[in-house]
Write a protein that binds this DNA or RNA. Structure first.
Lengths: 146, 146
DNA sequence: CTAAGAGCTAGAGCGCCCTCTAGGTCAAGC
DNA sequence: GCTTGACCTAGAGGGCGCTCTAGCTCTTAG
């Protein structure tokens, strides 16, 4: 089943497309993160399909939203096992969805704090570059901005 | 029994309040993340002030929004140096603000992908638990959900 | 014929951020 | 007096996610 011979990509090409390093690609493979085993040329070189690239794209999304490699492997295993475990996949995805949502919330909270500090400093700097204010390096220095 | 004066907290109490471990608190201190040196009792034990706790709270916000310890240390150094470097502090904060904004964007994108997959699986599971569909464990298995 | 360049494997190394251990002090309670 | 528990220091250890090295094979261009 080689749907498209037309696109058989070398590891270097996949690295370029995905932004992952060749090292990372081999590493991901060793770690069992690829849905199906990468084909090899007669000389042993990896040949990636478009599906592989798509899958890697999904892995990258998972990773960049903080899913540990271990969890990606679990998901991959489920998919590899084939039909019948969709509720497990769904549970895993939902769990991650919750996690990402929580992360966004957390970051949004942090952003509020940071933005507030930025505003305080901006205003402080705008209102007189002369440093007549701010004479005490004590507690008020920064906590005023918090 | 350590009901101190209104402000004078042991490392254990600070750990409890902040959620950091006592190890982490000592580690942060070693790493120069505290605005002013922690006071000590005569016996050498740390005594934290409310300001220290506030500062730590800010560090935690920084950390949980992905600021490396190194950057927190730089910020701390600026604050410790006292007035006169507000534009530097502001630059650092703005830079982090951008970073956090980008992270939120990234996570939001990931969440879209994940939510889409969740929807696909939900629909699939809702529409017949019988697994008459989904017969091929080949490419369509998961990429259909992507 | 040679050299460059891409690929291969196995495994070591690294950066970050804690976390834990060893070995000790001190204060309070039984 | 002895144990318990919170604290101390210095430094080792560990998890994660890559990244890099060593030593090799091929293929291709000059």
């Amino acid at each position: 089943m080689v749907p498209r011979m037309s696109t058989g990509l070398s590891i270097g090409q996949v690295a370029e497309r995905t932004g992952l390093s060749v090292h990372a690609l081999r590493f991901y493979e060793r770690e069992g993160l690829l849905a199906d085993p990468v084909r090899r040329e007669s000389n042993g070189r990896r040949v990636y399909s478009e599906d592989d690239v798509d899958w890697l794209g999904m892995c990258i999304k998972f990773r960049s939203s903080g899913m540990p490699l271990d969890t990606i492997r679990k998901y991959t295993d489920l998919v590899r096992q084939g039909p019948g475990n969709e509720q497990d996949r769904l549970a895993l995805l939902r769990s991650h969805q919750d996690h990402v949502t929580a992360q966004i919330q957390e970051l949004t909270d942090c952003l509020d704090v940071i933005t507030h500090k930025v505003d305080v400093y901006s205003r402080h700097l705008a209102a007189g570059t002369a440093d007549c204010l701010w004479t005490t390096p004590s507690s008020s220095t920064d906590s005023a901005a918090s």
